[in-house]
Amino acid sequence: MRALAAELGWAWSGTPDSPVLVTGRSSGDARLRPVGRYEERYVGGESYVELAVPLATVAADDAAQAAAFRAVNEELTAALGEPSVLGSHGDIGPFYDSGQLWGAPFMRWRGRPDTLELRAGKAGPELVLQPTDPAENWFWRQGIGEEQSISGYFGSNRDRANAGLGFPGGWTARSWETVTRSLSDFLGALPAETTALGIGIGMPLYGRTGSGAPILFDVTCRDRLSIGCFAPDDVDPAALGWGTVAQHPSTASVWSDDDPVWRVDAGGPGEPKGRALAEMLVATARAVGVSEPADLIVGGEAEYVDDYHVTFYGLGLRTG
């Protein structure tokens, strides 16, 4: 690290526990994260687990943060090619850091022995150089099966750089309150994250009842979040908060006809009311006759996002 700092013309500063590299950049100085007691179980001889370089200082609103991330995303992709891994850290960032309130998207160019990651930082996007094994070992070891042990979502493509990539086990929600909380976190940040990453997510949700497992919801998001509802005739979606295309005209570009009849336009970055949306989905599922969280199922087609296979760890819902 000292040799790298010297080569870049950066001055070494700070303390041994919190070293700083003075870059002279307007976006701020770089930070090194030494191996501490929370990291030592995941490393194999490394002194540092991250070198984080701020790339921009951006206004705190979600749309500005997402746009700044997207701009750097496009610049890095043009220079390095498509990232081999992308997703969202959710509210539990690497080595137990907390995610950003607007969203926690990341793009990763995996390598050996080091990996380069574009990450949502506190003031704007950050470029993070990290030894590959500690970061992946930390993630893999979170798969303990306890509720909300892993948050966010993780996608990988078929790039040869992903050879040997391991995937942790997930967890399953055991209560409707846990489902509400996980859906709230997911939906509230989704349009900001998909905008930042430049992806679109289409997620059908099915509900197992005594009469099968029909589709209940269609969650669609690129730069705006739209949710469609396929409730049976004996349920009143309007009473649960759903509207029609007349009330949510922007959804006409998502579903061109009257199927689904019931829908909601939740808005773009920073606009979705995650908790209210989650409560509406859970109330609708229960009104339809979905008796427990294990019977609310993410459609398998949701796992294919562009060229990436994505696992939605943070939802705690079964996939089928």
Rank of each mutant, 00 (worst) to 15 (best):
R275N: 05
L296K: 13
R112N: 08
A67R: 04
A104L: 08
F154T: 01
T195S: 14
Q142P: 05
A252E: 02
I144F: 07
T172N: 02
D236A: 13
S151G: 10
P191K: 06
F106N: 04
D17S: 13
C229G: 05
G300M: 07
S84D: 15
E193S: 02
D114A: 06
V264E: 03
P34H: 15
V264A: 08
N73F: 01
G210E: 09
L32Y: 08
A231E: 00
L129H: 14
Y48Q: 07
V310E: 07
L190K: 01
T132G: 07
L205G: 04
C229S: 08
R158E: 13
V20L: 11
A189W: 00
P125A: 09
G300D: 09
I199S: 06
E74T: 14
L127A: 12
G200C: 13
G44K: 04
G28F: 05
R174I: 12
T77L: 06
I144P: 00
R141C: 04
P204M: 01
Y38D: 14
G143M: 11
K273I: 04
T132S: 15
P19S: 04
P34N: 14
L296Q: 07
A196D: 02
E74M: 14
A3N: 13
V254I: 15
M1K: 00
S98I: 12
F217P: 04
V261W: 00
I92K: 09
R222C: 02
G145S: 10
V261C: 00
E7N: 07
S175T: 15
F312E: 04
T284V: 11
T251K: 00
A161L: 03
D258M: 03
I215P: 01
V290C: 11
S149Y: 06
E136N: 08
R119I: 02
D97A: 07
Y48D: 10
T284I: 05
E117L: 09
E279S: 12
G45M: 14
E147W: 12
L4K: 02
R263W: 01
F106W: 12
L225W: 12
F69K: 00
I199H: 01
